[in-house]
Nucleic acid binder design. Structure first.
Lengths: 343, 343
DNA sequence: CGCGTTTACGTCGTTCGTAACGATA
DNA sequence: TATCGTTACGAACGACGTAAACGCG
C-alpha cells in the first residue's frame, strides 16, 4: 500500500468515479491511475468499486470503508506537511476562508487588513457564498475557515467557535415617519410598513418571521436580497423599511438613511468561525482567529485546538461574554476593540 | 512522503532511537533506514531528532508531533489491511490476547476451546502477565485484546467492556477448623488465621486489605503469590487460609480442599475485556468477545464498536446485568452459560 | 465511432543491499 | 576498538508516459 495509491483512490472518488478525470486532476497519466487502483485492489484482495463493463459503476461496501480510512490518512499527511511548514516558514502559506456577504463586506475588511499587515506572505482566499455554498466548500475540504451566522446543522463536520453577537437595525430614509418617531419602534410599528430584508435561506431569517408571528403579526416583506447593500439601495428608493444586521450600517449611510437599533425586537444572532476538527492549525491561522474574535483568550484558543466535539467548545464560551457588534456608531479599529475586550 | 518513511520513523522511535536496531527489526539494511529518515527530514524541512554527533539524541518538539500523526496513519493503514482481510479471508488471521493468570488458567480455556473450534485457522497468541505487563503490551500495540480485573487507570488507551463479576472463595484443607464451621465465616474469623492470597499488584487486592481495615482488623498475610495454583499448594501445606477468585476453584480440589463462598466479605470484582478504540475489529474478534462475554447482545457489541470514549461504554452496561462467575459448583460449558444468559 | 479503461513496453527515477568510510566514547 | 551512522555504488524494482488494443454505448 502506498500513499500515492490512496491519493489516487480518493481522486477517483472525488471525480465521480471517472479515472480519466482523476488523472487530469492529478496531473498524471490515466493508465498510471488505473494501474495503481488495480494494484491496490489486488494487494487488499477486494474490489473497491463495482464495474459496469470497464467503467466504474459504484463503490462497494468494503470500498467505502477503505475510502473513509484513506481520508483520515491523507488528512494526517496534510497535517504533517502543514505543521512542518509551520516550523520552517512560519510566515508563509495559504488561508482560505468561506463566508457570507455581511461578514465579507462589513466585518472582515478590518480583520484582513490587520492580518495582511502581519502576514504579508500568506496568500488569502476569500470565498463568498450562501450558507449552503459555504457548506459545500467545507465538504470539499477547500477551505480553512468558515464564518457564518446560525445554520449550525449545515456544519456538523466543523467545530464552531462563537465569535460575536449582533442585533438588527432598521434602516429608513431620513424623511421617513419611523425616523421621526420619538420612541423605539415596536414590531407593531414595523408591521405597518412594507419590509426589505435578507432572503430566507439566510441564517437568522426565519427567526425574524417568527418574531412577528409571536405577536400575531404578519410582516409585509416586499423584497428580499442576499446582501445589505442591495437592501439599502431599495430602502433609498423608498421601496420599504430595511431590516439588516447591525454591522451593515455604514457611517456614510447617515447622509440619507436613518438607522434605528432593533435590539429586543428580534432574537440576537451569533456569528461563529468554524474549522475542521482534525486539521492542524498553523500559527497564522490561530492569529487570524485572534484577530477575528479578540475576546477569546489564548487559553481558550489552546483548548479549542484540542476539542474533540462541539460540546467541548460550547462549554468554553458563555454567550454572555461574547462581544456585541454594532455598525457605524461604535466603529472602532481592531486594536481598540481588543483593548475594550481585554479590559 | 511515503508510508515506508513513516514506518521507519516509528521503528526508530520504538527502538530507542537506534537506527541499527530499527533496521534489524524491519528486516532491512541500516543505511536504507538512515537514508529514508534523512529524506523525510529533508522533505519536511525540519529536524525530527536532535543529534549527538552522528547518533540520535532525542526527539524534537516538531518530531513528536510528526510521530504522533504518523502513528495515526499507520494505525489506519493497519485498519485498511485488517478490514480487507476480513472481507477476503474471514476465517484467517491472528488474535493476540494479554491477560492475567486467573483468566488464562481458569476462565479462558473454555472460551478458547470453543473459539478454536469455530476458527481453526486463526492463530492465537495468549500472553500472560501482571496488569503492568499487560499495559506495556497494550502500549506497544502488540495485542488485540486485554483481559483483566480492576486497574482501569493503567488502561486509559483502551475501551473496557465489563464482562463478568466475581466474588472470592476461602480455601482451607478439609480438616481445617473453618471447614467445620456451621455458619459462614466472617472477617473476624478469617483474621484469626494466617492468610495466603494474591500479591498486591493484583487489581482487587488492595480492596481486600481495605475490607479488613474497615472492621478494624489487620489480616495476617503470610504468603502472597501471583496465581491461585501456588496459593493452593501452600494452603495444602497448611501454611494458611487461602483467599482466591471464585473461578479458581477446581472440582478436583474437593478431594483435599474445602471452598467456602466469601461473597459479602469483600467487594465484588469486575473483569473486563479491553481493546484499542481506533483499531478495526475483525469478525472473529467480535465472535471472541461474544464467547467471552455471552451476555452482551449483538446490539450492544455493535454500539461498542462505535464508542468514542469509555463513558459511551459505561452507559451501555449496567453492572447488575453482568453475570456472576463461580468455580466448580456452577461449572457449565459455554453453550449452557449462553442459554442461561439469553433466557 | 467516441469515450473510457486496460494492456504493452521503453525510460527513468528510487530503493535496496554490500562495502567502505567517519565519528564518537 | 567497538558501536553507530553516513556515503558510495551497482543491481533490481517500480512508476510513469506513450502508443495501441479493447468494450461499451
Amino acid at each position: 500500500m502506498k500513499l500515492q495509491q490512496l491519493k489516487y483512490l480518493l481522486a477517483i472518488v472525488d471525480n465521480g468515479l471517472n479515472i480519466t478525470a482523476a488523472a487530469d486532476r492529478l496531473y498524471t497519466s490515466q493508465p498510471g491511475v488505473s494501474k495503481q487502483l488495480k494494484l491496490l485492489e489486488e494487494e487488499l484482495g477486494l474490489q473497491l468499486f463495482t464495474r459496469k463493463g470497464k467503467s466504474l459503476g459504484g463503490i462497494t461496501a468494503a470500498g467505502q470503508q477503505v475510502i473513509d480510512r484513506a481520508r483520515v490518512i491523507m488528512q494526517e499527511v496534510e497535517n504533517i506537511r502543514s505543521l512542518a511548514s509551520d516550523y520552517y516558514h512560519e510566515e508563509e502559506g495559504t488561508l482560505s476562508i468561506a463566508t457570507t456577504h455581511t461578514q465579507a463586506r462589513y466585518v472582515l475588511p478590518d480583520v484582513i487588513r490587520e492580518f495582511r499587515k502581519r502576514y504579508p506572505r500568506v496568500s488569502l482566499n476569500l470565498h463568498q457564498g450562501t450558507s449552503e455554498q459555504i457548506a459545500d466548500m467545507v465538504a470539499a475540504n477547500e477551505i480553512d475557515f468558515a464564518i457564518a451566522t446560525g445554520s449550525h446543522d449545515l456544519f456538523a463536520d466543523l467545530l464552531l467557535v462563537p465569535s460575536y453577537r449582533w442585533d438588527r437595525k432598521i434602516l429608513v430614509p431620513n424623511e421617513h415617519n419611523l425616523a421621526r418617531l420619538d420612541r423605539k419602534p415596536t414590531l407593531h410599528d414595523l408591521a405597518k410598513f412594507p419590509l426589505v430584508t435578507y432572503v430566507f435561506s439566510f441564517g437568522g431569517q426565519s427567526s425574524l418571521k417568527k418574531a412577528f408571528a409571536n405577536k400575531g403579526l404578519e410582516p409585509d416583506v416586499v423584497f428580499t436580497a442576499r446582501d445589505a447593500d442591495v437592501i439599502k439601495t431599495y430602502v433609498r428608493m423608498g421601496l420599504g423599511v430595511g431590516i439588516v444586521a447591525s454591522m451593515a450600517e455604514d457611517c456614510d449611510d447617515k447622509k440619507d438613511l436613518t438607522a434605528i437599533e432593533a435590539d429586543g425586537l428580534f432574537p440576537r444572532s451569533t456569528t461563529w468561525i468554524g474549522f475542521r476538527k482534525d486539521a492542524v492549525m498553523r500559527r497564522y491561522m490561530l492569529d487570524f482567529v485572534q484577530l477575528f474574535a479578540p475576546h477569546i483568550t489564548s487559553d481558550q484558543l489552546e483548548q479549542t485546538r484540542h476539542a474533540r466535539s462541539q460540546d467541548d467548545i460550547d462549554g468554553l464560551f458563555a454567550s454572555a461574554d461574547l462581544p456585541l457588534r454594532g455598525g457605524c456608531s461604535e466603529d472602532m479599529p481592531i486594536a481598540a476593540a481588543r483593548k475594550v475586550v481585554g479590559a
